[in-house]
């Protein structure tokens, strides 16, 4: 029984370790973790967040 993870445990664990990864875009990791913790993770909210990240990155480039 102990080796079996519930759906919630599995999701929690995945998002807990997402921020520690260095092979993925950190801004994206932060975005996904925030949306997940706020229970707002949907296809649309992810796309909106990524759009904001892109314009932020462009601004940073322009600066």
């Amino acid at each position: 029984m102990s080796e079996i993870q519930s759906g919630k445990e599995l999701r929690d664990q995945f998002f807990e370790t997402l921020g520690e990864r260095d092979d993925i875009h950190q801004g994206m990791a932060v975005l996904l973790i925030r949306l997940y913790s706020e229970n707002k993770l949907t296809g649309t909210t992810i796309l909106k967040g990524l759009e904001a990240l892109r314009s932020g990155m462009e601004d940073a480039t322009e600066d």
Partner: peptide, 24 residues
């Protein structure tokens, strides 16, 4: 079975990620 074992909430996340990926 996913419903019985409470994995449909996992499926929801995977589908949200996939939708965003396809959207991109």
């Amino acid at each position: 079975v996913e419903r019985i074992i409470g994995f449909e909430i996992v499926t929801d996340i995977r589908e949200a990620l996939l939708r965003a990926l396809n959207g991109l």
